[in-house]
Design a protein around this nucleic acid. Structure first.
Lengths: 327, 327
DNA sequence: GTGAAAGCGCTAACAG
DNA sequence: CTGTTAGCGCTTTCAC
């Protein structure tokens, strides 16, 4: 180790690099100076081999969700993770784990190649990696679908609260027959946003039977809207569980010669450009996606460093009012 | 190394793991069996320390492009990289490198922490990391802006050809006064798409003075369209250098009481949902984004393994015809 | 507070 | 073809 040419031993240099408290100040300065001068960069491999810590965090992305990236929300979450980690000594290792290789992923994770993992999936309820949580620090994006897996650490957005806010907003603007296009009922966001809609209607004493299920795609939103209108009952408000489905619903509403917000006020959830570029611009619920990712990274790092952390972190949402719910 | 309990030496196990050709078949079988039985996973750190190869590839993302992820094109490129790498033993390490830390990134890359790097940026012409190419295998996404940096390896989409195809398509549908909203003229895609538009018009002997520059955002597209219309000259065709700007132009065209494609046929570039969700749906040029990423990974891996590769790889585009250019 | 010595788990010559 | 012998560059007891 050349830096030892700073007049000290390799061990001391190591201490300085690792910010050990028990090193004389003058020595620290001398070593740091030498490090800068020699352009020294510690070798990660050697370091982890000796310390038995890898400084690597895995980002597990179930491949069935190859579309993951095409969803701006997740892209943003991942960005948040990357940004948060950039301030630490941890490195991000993306694992696209297809179903056929999930066993391989599992072994890789347990093989001492990473210090912890972040699991992000469209099927965020899928905590099938939850069991690993006992052998390796893991943080999930999204609450588990099953209560039985509630032992895991996770960061989630408060879906129910957000949905309730959007619904109440529609009501406050005057809508009385508020329908919803819910997400898949086997995914927590699908369930929770429907529950939030119900909750808000209950508080107002409004009817909560006007709901159809979609799969978060624009097409499914259009179909669901078609089914809702086919019921022949009055509808003057719509809460779509995401902006994509709201966009799909838009086209059907227009097809039927109805206007937004004139005949039907519409609110979505996610705040992405499906909503912002729609005409009229869509009122929606904004999720702090990058912050969510950053929080996941933060929780994981604490977990790895054995600091105490909450098992559950819920991030709050924000209503973004736009033309689609004008009074 | 427990697997040595398969009756052979550590060295032999190593050979089997690394698929060395000179090992007796029966021995290979025995070792593999033991590996499976003992659930053995090689330690990456030890491996790279000994072999002096890290099996890590850096994905460098200049942070000035924090919006990088919000662009579906790049998200898809990154996905392609990740997918391609999943089939190899290489691991992806994302580096969000802010300007202030670019020196740190540089040192990290040269510090023996990675075997190679992929640089992806909005300012794809920025090959400021190009110099590193001499000490470390590097592949860039997008051609360099300066010819002087042409020594680097890069994978790019054939922007000029795509733009020409879109423009010729407008002409073939009957447009004779074809304008363009170009991208920034300090970015290769901005330059090349403008050049492609010019080229196509030249072949037809059409006027090529109708152009304005935008910055790839919808807002800039709207402003550019406003300026184009303000010229007071006839326009019956528009090629926007990306779908976002085309979307921006849409609103201005409609504001002016003009119809698409009735009065003006419009074509974009990128094929993302700005175009597919626009009304009428936008004819555009599709880029094989995921394949582009995959190709970058492939080229880099070959470079690392000292196989021969082309310095330049151009991927071809595809015209996606939609309502905005109906005859 | 600092140095010396002993590995971390694996690969890479070099002999056999 | 396979075993032996050395390290890879760093952290970490354990003395001093």
């Amino acid at each position: 180790m050349v830096a030892a040419a700073a007049g000290v031993s390799r061990a001391t240099v190591s201490r300085v690099v690792n910010a050990s408290p028990r090193v004389t100040e003058s020595v620290v300065a001398a070593v740091n100076d030498a490090i800068a001068r020699l352009n020294y960069v510690p070798n990660r491999a050697a370091r982890s081999l000796a310390s038995r810590r890898t400084q690597v965090i895995a980002l597990v992305v179930p491949e069935t969700t190859a579309k993951l990236f095409s969803d701006p929300f997740f892209a943003s979450v991942i960005q948040g993770i990357a940004m948060a980690l950039a301030d630490t000594d941890f490195t991000l290792n993306m694992l696209i784990s297809s179903e056929t290789r999930s066993e391989k992923t599992r072994r890789y994770l347990l093989g001492g190649n990473v210090d912890g993992a972040i699991v992000v999936s469209h099927h965020s309820g899928d905590h099938s990696y939850a069991q690993l949580g006992q052998s390796l620090p893991i943080v999930f994006g999204g609450r588990p679908l099953l209560a039985s897996e509630s032992g895991s650490y996770f960061v989630d957005v408060d879906n129910a609260a957000g949905a309730a806010v959007a619904t109440e907003h529609l009501a406050s603007r005057g809508s009385r027959h508020i329908a919803t296009i819910a997400g898949p009922q086997d995914m927590p966001p699908g369930l929770d946003r429907l529950a939030g809609w119900r909750h808000a209607l209950a508080l107002r004493g409004l009817d909560d039977s006007l709901w159809e299920v979609g799969d978060f795609t624009p097409e499914s939103g259009a179909e669901a809207m078609r089914r809702l209108l086919a019921r022949g009952r009055p509808i003057d408000g719509l809460f779509a569980a995401n902006d994509q489905m709201a966009a799909g619903a838009y086209s059907v509403i227009h097809e039927h010669g109805l206007s937004i917000p004139g005949d039907i006020r519409v609110a979505g959830f996610d705040n992405n450009y499906f909503g912002s570029t729609a005409v009229p611009a869509l009122t929606t619920i904004d999720q702090p996606s990058a912050e969510l990712g950053a929080k996941m990274a933060e929780v994981l790092v604490k977990l790895i460093e054995r600091q105490s952390v909450e098992r559950v972190t819920l991030m709050s949402t924000r209503l973004v009012e736009r033309a689609s719910t004008a009074p």
